[in-house]
Design a protein around this nucleic acid. Structure first.
Lengths: 140, 140
DNA sequence: TCCAGTAACTTGTAAAATGAAAGTAACTGG
DNA sequence: CCAGTTACTTTCATTTTACAAGTTACTGGA
C-alpha cells in the first residue's frame, strides 16, 4: 500500500518534558495534521478567529459553548503548533488578542472544504452561499 | 457575529435510545461536520478506504495502529452517518467489504486540503506530489 | 482428525480527555 | 467600597481512548 507514505515511527515518549510533541503517529500528512487539529474543538477556534474574533471572551461566546478549560488548552496547543499567536493589546490589566499566523490562515482550504461538505450532506446546517467572503486571506 | 450561522440548539439528550444522535452542537456546518469526523481516527479510516483498502484487517494494518475496538466503533459510526456501507463478499464465514458512499467520497476535498496543509506546514511528512491521483473519484 | 492460523470482532480495564461548575487575580466604573 | 468584567485555573465526575486479551467461525495442512 504505497502512496500516502504512512509508515509508523514506532517511537514512544518516555518523558513529555524531554520530547515535547515529536511523537507523531506516522509520516502521513493526514495523520500528522490530525495529531494537531483532529478533535471536536480546535478547528472551531480557528473558525472563530477567521470570523474576526480576537479575545478569550469573544471565543467563549460561540454557540457551541466550548468549556473554558478546553478553550484555554486549545489556545495553548495552537500557539505551540504555530497556528496562532497573541499580542497584548493593553496593559493594566494585561490582555491578549489572539490571531492566526500564516500557518493558521492556510487552514482556510480545510475549513472551506468542511463547510462545503457539511452544507451538501448534513441537513439543517446553515447554508453558506459565499464561502470565500467568509474566509478571506487577510493580508494582516 | 453573523455569517457561519452558529446558533446553539440548547437541547439535551435524556435517553440515547430515544434521540439517537440528533443532538448537534449548532447549525454551523463546521461544527456539525466535526460532530461526525472531528476526532483523531475517523478521517484516517476514510483515507484508507480511499487508498483502496476494503476489509477490517486491511484497515487495521495501517501504520498508525488503530486500536481494534476504535476501528470497530468508527466503522459503525461511519455507517450510521452514511459515509460508508458494507457488502458481504463471501459467506462461510460471512465477510464484509467496506466502501465509501457518495457522501464519503465527497470528503476527498477535505482530505486533499489536509494533505496540502500537512505537506506545507508539518516537517517530515511524506510529500505527496500528485494528490489528485491519490484521491480519484471512483465511479464504482 | 487435529491443530495452527486468519478474520472480524467483543470485552475488560486503566489511563487520558472532556464537561460542568466553581474559584481566582487584576482591574474598572459607579 | 463594591458589583462587574476579563481571562483564566482548579476540581471532580463522566466519557472516551488505549491496550491487552478473549471469542467465534472458518480454512488449510500434517
Amino acid at each position: 500500500m504505497p502512496g500516502l507514505g504512512c509508515y509508523s515511527h514506532a517511537m514512544k515518549t518516555p518523558d513529555k518534558s524531554v520530547l515535547p510533541d515529536a511523537c507523531k503517529r506516522s509520516v502521513c500528512p493526514v495523520a500528522s495534521a490530525l495529531d494537531i487539529v483532529g478533535d471536536k474543538w480546535t478547528l472551531l477556534v480557528v473558525r472563530d478567529l477567521y470570523m474576526g474574533k480576537k479575545t478569550y471572551s469573544e471565543l467563549q461566546k460561540s454557540p457551541e459553548n466550548i468549556p473554558t478549560n478546553i478553550l484555554a488548552d486549545r489556545l495553548k496547543r495552537l500557539q505551540q503548533a504555530g497556528i496562532i499567536d497573541r499580542q497584548s493589546y493593553q496593559t493594566n490589566p494585561l490582555r491578549y488578542a489572539y490571531r492566526l499566523t500564516d500557518k493558521g490562515r492556510d487552514l482556510d482550504r480545510v475549513l472551506k472544504a468542511i463547510v462545503e461538505w457539511g452544507n451538501r450532506h448534513i441537513p439543517e446546517t446553515m447554508q453558506i452561499e459565499d464561502i470565500d467572503s467568509l474566509f478571506p486571506r487577510l493580508s494582516e
